[in-house]
Amino acid sequence: MTASAASLFDSFRLGDMTLPNRIAMAPLTRNRAEAGLVPGDMTAQYYAQRASAGLLITEASQISQQGQGYQDTPGIYSPEQVAGWRKVTDAIHAAGGRVVIQLWHVGRVSHTALQPGEGAPVAPSAIRAETKTYVNDSFTETSLPRALDASEIPGIVEDYRKAAANAVAAGFDGVEIHAANGYLIDQFLKDGANRRSDSYGGSITNRTRFLLEVLDAVVGEIGAARTGLRLSPVSPANGISDSHPQALFNHVMDEVEKRHPLYVHVVEGATGGPRDIAPDFSFAELRQRFTGPWMVNNGYDLELAEKVIAEGEADLVAFGRPFISNPDLVERLRRKAPLNELKKETLYGGGAEGYVDYPTLDDAAR
């Protein structure tokens, strides 16, 4: 590393925020929302414990009941949910942190038990997601979706806009649009899930249309400087695929660049899995097409994170599961201290155990 190279622990200017370091906490579903899918006091404690991250990105939060795909995930569409999130953001800010909420519509990755009137989940096309969801305290095959009528799409775009407005009302510093991991926006993007023959299907331009309508609506409501975007170009998460991902995401980045969002957050490789599943895909090519802040994610350890920051390949690095078991992950990385072991059996659902009871270095020293 040269004397002028950036460090993972340097501050970074992101929109109107000055981040104390370049480490982000990635969005992590924990299935602990309370009645009405409202985040509770324990959720406020959980995020405040992790406020030393340069940026916190909350667990994905649905923009409507239709957008829900898993049991006990929080929403950002009701007054009660907004009030619950306000307690969370207040706790984070009191602890010195900065936070954006991830806006979510799962599309076909859902189950009739979670949908309004127990109807079918919605998707670009009526193709079942080859994956499971979490319903009634167990993992269950997803339900067969129905294809959205073109007349329904503007209403979903409006739900994103309202959710962004709600996020600001709840005290968030911004939002991250979830366009990754096989959920609704990703389903529109990728031809393995989108077989439409109208203006939202077929060509790359058409398949990108829904993403850009959502991005424009959110930017129009809260401004580009408070709007981030997450993408996973080659991840097969939730049974998603595309026949020509490089061409697709080159086009996506050319269009996103015109809109100057707060950042782009990219999952490199398979979400939560191998980084090298698409050796012919060039993430560097995407990076060259976007002049704004670039956040990378998936399988990063301290050494790799330091390398990509020092070499200018990324501006921010998002860590996922290590933040679950290490509320003071930033300090542990700084000191090269050992990490707590993750309790996988407490990842989804439950109470305080495996949620707010992981010790910090200071706890261990007592």
Rank of each mutant, 00 (worst) to 15 (best):
A6N: 14
F12R: 14
L14E: 08
L14P: 07
L14N: 10
D16S: 13
L28K: 06
N31I: 02
A35D: 15
G36R: 14
G36A: 05
V38A: 12
D41E: 15
M42Y: 10
Y47G: 06
A48R: 13
A53L: 03
G54P: 09
I57F: 02
Q62W: 04
Q62G: 05
A83Q: 12
A91V: 05
H93P: 03
G96M: 11
I101M: 14
Q102N: 08
W104A: 08
V109K: 13
Q115V: 05
K132L: 01
E141H: 11
S143Q: 08
D149Q: 15
A150R: 15
G155E: 15
G155V: 06
I156K: 11
I156H: 10
Y160E: 04
A164S: 06
A167S: 15
V168K: 15
F188A: 06
S203V: 09
R209V: 02
D216I: 12
V219H: 09
E221K: 03
A224S: 14
A224V: 08
P233V: 05
S243M: 03
H244M: 09
P245V: 00
M253I: 10
V256M: 03
R259P: 04
R259F: 04
G269P: 08
G272T: 10
G292Q: 13
A310V: 08
G312M: 12
E313F: 06
A314C: 04
A314M: 03
P327W: 05
L329C: 02
R332A: 01
K336A: 04
A337M: 07
P338N: 06
T346Q: 11
G350V: 10
G351I: 04
D362F: 07
A365Q: 14
